[in-house]
Design a protein around this nucleic acid. Structure first.
Lengths: 255, 255
DNA sequence: GCCACTAAATGAATGCCATTCATTTATTAG
DNA sequence: CTAATAAATGAATGGCATTCATTTAGTGGC
């Protein structure tokens, strides 16, 4: 699927089903999701009032959002569409989430659990970082609209994300990083990862200067000579280049 | 995708700098004195039909958008608000711009001209890159909502942005970079810059694990020990760290 | 076993948004 | 002189997130 040499990043350690953390115990069967094909069911008017068994919970909402995103992209993720997917009135969603942003948050935290941190504590630091970074980028390249959300997201609100940070931090400690540099190093890597995720989604001809080409000879030549060696995806080349530089440079901070 | 009935909007006589012509309401004197009977900011009804002197152009729209963004942020940048700022009906904007995205594009390209590329051709490569990167980050940290737009923006549509790339490319050539690595190196730097721009906007307590702190000892300790040395802004520390690593690592690619 | 309270659903607004269209008026090209 | 075009208005249009009143079902306290 991917041209880069880190496809193992794709094999997830634990495809944690959404909802393992949903605060509601009680009901043994999670509503909405695991009950097989629940789609369709059109026109089946449900009368107003509380149903005997809850139709919604955060896990189901997360799963439905992911399915919708996969099918229609983030433009298709509207509260109305989400409600429709769950065969529910739009206003019902607001009994379980405060806003659409909350939905995005649930999705984000679910995705964080898919990032491969298995290298930390098992393989050399450089190796673990490389695996983590590629997998992190690959996951969020499919979900760039979440990046503005993550970037300002208090980790308190995202337990899986926080768990990822803990594992990565532990790996940095074990590798000999001084404590007060760890967060900065992770943030630097993460910034690069988020920016690179956008890069993946860019159209191939983004750097085609078109009619202005004569006015920009150096740039145009550079673009052409990159395109000339069309083996690897440009976004992957740039990511690999930058990641190597960061790993080498940041690795030098170890005590 | 843009060759369409709105093509005229893109081939407008692109006046020099924004603000030189149709600025915001009240300061604009270009259309002559015929401000008419009710000149007041509110309810100043202009009768339908083409006015003798054009009220709008892309430069004026750009300037008004920037002022609005400065005053109300990107949430306040709506086509209606923009029209109001320019004392014009919302639909009038669409004679000069095909969509709101076009407005963001105009703003982006205006900002690209503010990025400091003066080091290239004047100072050592490392030095020039550092100046460029810090200034690039600082400009877009104030305008993070543009980042998703830039990231997929064909450079053809953004002459100032293209000009920036040309200067930077020339600097890389002069520094001895092999041609086919230049775009990748720039993209890597840019990805880091965009990601870091988001980081600037993050709330200070973003990494406060709150009640989950005991469950994440390594991460919590790292966050605390960073906060302990509270001299420099965390976002700046991380950016400086990553930038140094990238400059060193990428610089090694020179022939 | 009753009753108040709360939880979870519906369905009908609300207000904001970008965008479109018919129309009017002015300028410009042939 | 006239047809085409450019640039404005003002009135839709449809979609959007969100809120609110209402209905119904479970729950905890007595």
């Amino acid at each position: 699927m991917l041209g880069n040499p880190h496809e193992r990043a794709r094999t997830m350690p634990a495809a944690a089903a959404p909802g393992t953390t949903a605060g509601k115990a009680g009901t043994s069967t999670a509503p909405g999701v695991a009950t097989g094909p629940d789609d369709g069911a059109k026109g089946a008017r449900r009368r107003a009032g509380r149903p005997s068994a809850a139709l919604l919970d955060q896990a189901g909402i997360t799963a439905a959002a992911l399915e919708l995103i996969g099918k229609k992209g983030y433009d298709g993720l509207t509260m109305a569409a989400l409600a429709r997917q769950l065969d529910v009135a739009p206003s019902a969603l607001y009994n379980h989430v405060a806003s659409k942003r909350d939905v995005l948050l649930l999705v984000e935290d679910h995705l964080a659990a898919l990032v491969d941190v298995s290298g930390f504590g098992a393989r050399p630091w450089e190796d673990a970082v490389r695996t983590w970074a590629w997998s992190y980028r690959d996951v969020f390249a499919q979900h760039t609209p979440l990046i503005p959300v993550i970037a300002v997201l208090p980790v308190t609100d995202a337990p899986q994300t926080l768990a990822m940070y803990e594992t990565v931090s532990a790996g940095f400690v074990a590798a000999g990083f001084p404590e007060e540099r760890i967060v900065s190093a992770i943030v630097a890597l993460e910034s690069f990862i988020f920016g690179s995720a956008y890069d993946v989604t860019a159209p191939a001809d983004i750097f085609d200067a078109g009619s202005m080409a004569e006015a920009t000879p150096h740039f145009t030549a550079a673009v052409r000579s990159l395109a000339a060696r069309g083996d690897e995806r440009p976004a992957d080349v740039a990511f690999g280049l930058g990641l190597d530089a960061l790993i080498t440079g940041l690795g030098a901070l170890r005590g």
